[in-house]
């Protein structure tokens, strides 16, 4: 199959190369010295880097939670709207996703920078007097990530809620469950596969994000994606960059494996 050849040469071979080089050492002038050691993996435990992994995980987790909180009511509303409107709403959710990611991130730079729109609006109504610095902070990165990946949360949630039998929800209500109990005891358990799928679809790109922290985060909010780029293109320590890449990929694949395990359990 030609596709397998193409993918083998231009994807699996390069990935394998990353794995191999992650055990090598950096050459004196940036190249690769072919040795075998675990030094790169051990170096990853440096507190400097640990802070970056922790920030990546925390920001990705926060993005996931915020997307879930924003996305669930939206997905629920769409799934229970008349069929015609469902199509319109879904279209509206997808359109921003088709708009260039850099452009969408730039929009937030424009809004959040110290003399940006957000500040201008707030100061013109007298809420703030001195410039507020939101851009180049973790908050800005969080906003950018949520903005970028919200559609990834809404779509699988919508699919799960749409499949949820209306009469089952009514049955819970009829059996004395209040709004919250209906949600916790019936809606949430029955839409769990959608929730998990949405969380993964948001968490995976968030944890490996590059553009958002690069543009909105500045030097203080580096994430793993930026660290890899930094090691490759600035420090030119390819073996160490490879080790970090591999650890990131392993994390993502473990997340996916967990998802499939949960999904098959729910499907029984």
């Amino acid at each position: 199959m030609p596709a397998l050849v193409w993918m083998g040469v231009f994807l699996f071979l390069p990935l394998l190369l990353v794995l191999v080089i992650s055990f090598a050492a950096r050459g004196t002038y940036g190249g690769v010295e072919w040795t075998f050691s675990l030094a790169n993996y051990l170096n990853m435990a440096d507190p400097l880097y640990l802070r970056i992994y922790a920030r990546s995980l925390a920001l990705a987790a926060a993005t996931t939670v915020v997307c879930l909180l924003l996305g669930f009511p939206l997905a629920y509303y769409i799934a229970r709207a008349p069929a015609r409107w469902q199509a319109v709403w879904l279209m509206l959710i997808i359109i921003p996703f088709w708009t260039n990611f850099l452009v969408r991130t730039y929009a937030w730079m424009f809004i959040l920078r110290s003399e940006g729109l957000f500040h201008t609006v707030l100061s013109s109504v007298g809420l703030v007097t001195s410039p507020i610095e939101i851009l180049y902070s973790d908050t800005a990165v969080l906003i950018g990530l949520v903005y970028g990946y919200l559609p990834f949360m809404v779509l699988p949630l919508y699919a799960a809620i749409e499949r949820l039998d209306r009469s089952v929800v009514e049955a819970a209500w009829d059996l004395y469950a209040s709004g919250w109990s209906v949600f916790w005891r019936v809606v949430l358990p029955l839409t769990k596969p959608g929730v998990i799928a949405g969380c993964l679809l948001v968490f995976i790109p968030s944890v490996g994000a590059f553009i958002t922290p690069d543009l909105l985060g500045g030097a203080r909010s580096m994430m793993v994606g930026n660290l890899i780029q930094h090691e490759y293109l600035v420090v030119r320590d390819w073996p160490f960059g490879s080790a970090i890449s591999f650890a990131l990929m392993a994390l993502v694949l473990v997340g996916i494996a967990v998802y499939f395990k949960v999904e098959t359990k729910v499907a029984v």
């Binding site: 490996g208 390819w238 990929m249």
Partner: peptide
């Protein structure tokens, strides 16, 4: 390719 971080794909191809 749909699930691994894009940065990873980028560096792998660069390296290759």
């Amino acid at each position: 390719p749909l699930v691994i971080p894009e940065v990873m794909m980028g560096v792998a191809l660069l390296l290759f």
